[in-house]
Amino acid sequence: MRAYTFTQARSVREAHSRAGAHTAFLAGGTTLVDLMKLDVMAPAHVVDINGLPLRGVTLDRRGLHVGALERMSDVAANPTVRRHYPVIARALELSASAQLRNMASIGGNLLQRTRCGYFRDVATACNKREPGSGCSALTGWNRGHAILGTSDDCAATHPSDLAVALVVLGTDVHLASARGTRTVPLDGFYTLPGTTPHVENVLRPGELITGITVPRSAWAAHSTYLKIRDRQSYEFALASAAVALEMRGDTITKARIAVGGMGTRPWRLPAVERALTGHRATEATYEAAVRHAASGSKTLEHNAFKPALLRRTLVRALTALEEQR
């Protein structure tokens, strides 16, 4: 690991005052320490932010507020989250392992880096890690790679399960920098790779995620997360779906759908949502609605199975949700 200076901040203001060029904020460390060992990330300064007061899980009229430093395991076990936002609890429980969930923070989870093997291997070309060096995945082993939102420079998937669930729920992300605070919708927080895959979100240098707010909604309580992977546990998603429905009797009055493992960022499917709305919750409705779920996708040599997997994952998630009622 390369040398860095190490300091601990006790307030958001102190964290900003220590944040210069090439600074990384350290929370759970499950991404940063891993990638520093691999020399994929090499910050000159590491600022430990675990002493910051960015904690708490509270519910009020506006919605669910979660501090950025809350740990994944604590949020997953929180009774309020489990009752009002089951899709969040489920997405968290299906992520990583118990040890990693005890360590990893909510803010860090949203900022975790792709699991693309070429990104993680400094001996290979990767535009995300080293802009302009090329993309090894496009012509290499790309079974796990994205089919939505890709470019000629990058097809790396976003690995977070939580982000898929939060995008479905219309979550806001609260940011703070030395210049002030701002709030952005999580759906707009992530950027497409385009010709700049090293830019993954709208965070400005030195800016920090301080927390999230998940609005209250009728569909949030009727939601679930389904994750399809090569192993039964402790594996990233090959495909995943976060689904939330508002129902009147057997009729779907509102639908929110997003998928993981498919896109270069958490991927909403508004066309599927529209196709479900106003119809009875039956398998025939689901099958019809997901028919064009993967339209606009671009497959690579080894991931041509993903459009079909996407459709099946959606139908299974919707069916599972309906069975929970």
Binding site: F6, Q8, L26, G29, T30, V33, N50, Q99, N102, M103
Partner: peptide, 15 residues
């Protein structure tokens, strides 16, 4: 009291 991975925990954060 919580199970964690010591390989991804910086000793400097265990003060």
């Amino acid at each position: 009291g919580r199970r964690v991975l010591s390989c991804l925990t910086l000793a400097a954060t265990t003060n």
